[in-house]
Design a protein around this nucleic acid. Sequence first.
DNA 1: GGAACTCGCCAC
DNA 2: AAACGTGGCGAGTTCC
Length: 469
Amino acid sequence: MYQPHPQSKAAYKLLHDGVLALGRAEQRGIRLDLKYCHAETERLTREIKALEQAFHHTKFYRHWFKTLGGRTPNINSNAQLGNFLYKRKKLKPIKTTVTGQGSTDEEALLQLNIPELNDLLRLRGLKKIRDTYLKGFLKEQVGGRVHPNFNLHIARTYRSSSDRPNFQNIPKRDEEAKRICRQALFPSKGYQLMAVDYSGIEVCVSACYHQDPTMMKYIKDPKSDMHRDMAQQVYELKTYDPSITGHKVLRSAAKNGFVFPQFYGDYYRNCAISMACNWGKLPDGRWKPGQGIPLGDGSLSDHLLGQGHKSLEQFADHVQRIEKDFWGRRFRVYARWKEKTWEQYQRTGYVELLTGFRCGGLMAYNDVTNYPIQGAAFHCLLKAFVLADRELRARKFKTRLIGQIHDEMILDVWPPELDEVGELLLDVMTQQVPEEWPWIVVPLTVDMEVSPVDGSWQEMGSYVRDARK
DNA sequence: GGAACTCGCCAC
DNA sequence: AAACGTGGCGAGTTCC
């Protein structure tokens, strides 16, 4: 493994202070509801067994069994499943894995439109929750607490990683998985959990590198909204109105299907597919009326057919023009920064972070333009983590930091200290960090969430400072 | 019986 | 110039 190491004294100090602060968080750890973990593991096992029983009685399974000549299929084995689907049944995989095998991931299986495969996907999901998360917590717990590790010496970007257990990939988007997993994690008895994250820190840090005027305006003007603007452009909406059915969905499709992938270095074709995938199946490559999400009085496909987009190919051409406009006009200064940074890497063999680190070694174009942003964005959080840890201890708070998820800190808060802690974190993250680093030329903002006293990590709700204090 | 690998999937 | 960046981890599989 390529071993990164800091290139400047300031960079070294950040890692040194960071390791100590993270070590204290590891020591504190997080309370685990052991009884819940055991009971929920058993409940999931019962549900999994019932689903497996039902699956064993399907025509699909019996066929699979026969093709193995008496051997019992292992329904956890994607290799066996892939063989059955793509070699025995001769179905056509929609995509292959890196080694050229037919893919059996969720997207590929759904495309085959075989009802029994939905049961298999449901089983996969439940096993992931039980085996990776609940059992993973139980395996690592000591005296009813888990103490996740936070590493600063692994990621090539100088980001952090976490393990035993990984505190940075606990389900959040899928409601059921989120509930089951986060219901296991609690503040100390009589305490409450607090989470504070930087809003859009990677976008803000990228702006510190290139200072693209369009991007600066988007960051500084609270009325502007680049995801809204891109939704309007991609989907050709005359106006954007969050109260119109479907508009918020399209904003989020533009954000996660175009803006962020473009920043990471994706290109128009993938973006077009991603932004069109809600529109139902395209058996002949052409869209029909009434497909896709509801939009206004009709559907998305009605709207786009009206705009002349009859097929994915036409839509992709449209997205290609938008990509050209995105980098050639809208964010041309950002685009120039990418090119300059790439040239510099080719000349010197490394790329510099604003925080004093260097990323070297063999890198692709996307790596060179992404690493400095990803790394320095995390360093904002790490610097804030160090300062907050120092201040909490100096002021003899009972509240302590317990973890960090790239752009977010998690604290175990003593309830009487809640509002003071909120003030402290706001000050550290939005004032002290930018004061220490003059290269931060855009305002940084945060979002805060808290759990009820003795509430689990699943019960986090937005925190609004009490104005009377 | 363990190391190394593949695949899929969770987070930011 | 290249065609989505960074991690961890479980189960299955292959190799020694």
